[in-house]
């Protein structure tokens, strides 16, 4: 997570044109074959540890996952070769000539597209969104729906570059309470009431 330090307030001050460094520029897509290979390994381990009952006709329950795992290894190898031979640098989006936007907006987008960042993705905002969801999943049971959902809403709003944290708390609590009333009280779904349950 060095990304967090590298460009804290990136949009305000284009970092000293630090281009995505070195060999991995345009090759970070290697993470895709990596995920596929890891998943194939998971399936393969599943196949190897599978306890197939005696006397099962071929092809048994391990046949199809094995097929998928082998195909997964082949495709990830091909993808690795592809990324090594022709890197795919990320291209920031700008308005095309068809977009109905003002000249100022167009210029802004083009200027923004020229700014080089150490990472193409904004990991700081992303961390707010991902962390918010992880926190939601963790505290939903103990703290209850209203608190957890409000926290999730607030974190995602923050990730979307909201500038009014206090006002956001009000909106977040309103949204989570309305959702609780609508789905738990009216529609009869079972949402955890948590620490507010006794009130």
């Amino acid at each position: 997570m060095t990304a967090l330090r590298a460009h804290d307030d990136a949009p305000a001050q284009p970092t000293e044109a630090a281009p995505a460094a070195g060999w991995f520029a345009g090759r970070s897509g290697l993470v895709v074959p990596l995920i596929l290979a890891a998943f194939s390994t998971y399936l393969l381990v599943g196949v190897l540890t599978m306890e197939v009952p005696e006397g099962t006709d071929w092809p048994g329950p391990d046949f199809f996952p094995l097929l998928v795992a082998i195909a997964g290894y082949i495709v990830s190898a091909l993808l690795v070769v592809k990324y090594i031979r022709q890197p795919e640098p990320a291209v920031p989006n700008v308005y095309s000539e068809l977009d109905d936007v003002s000249a100022a907006e167009r210029a802004e987008a083009e200027a923004a597209a020229k700014v080089r960042y150490r990472f193409f993705s904004d990991w700081r905002c992303l961390a707010w969104a991902i962390g918010g969801f992880a926190a939601f999943a963790l505290i939903l049971m103990p703290a209850g729906w209203i608190v957890a959902a409000a926290l999730l809403f607030w974190c995602v709003a923050r990730a979307m570059d909201s500038r009014r944290p206090l006002w956001d708390v009000v909106v977040a609590l309103t949204v989570s309470s309305v959702a609780y009333l609508a789905f738990d009280v009216l529609l009869g779904m079972n949402l955890p009431s948590g620490i507010l349950g006794g009130l």
């Binding site: 939601f136 999943a137 607030w154 949204v175 789905f183």
Partner: peptide, 30 residues
Amino acid sequence: RPYLYGGIAVMCGLGVFATSSSAFELFLLL
């Protein structure tokens, strides 16, 4: 925009939790 996507995230959590009632499913979602 912050409230639009905040609302979508809450809907995701609500929908999946409503069908499964398990925190495990929420981590799978993540």
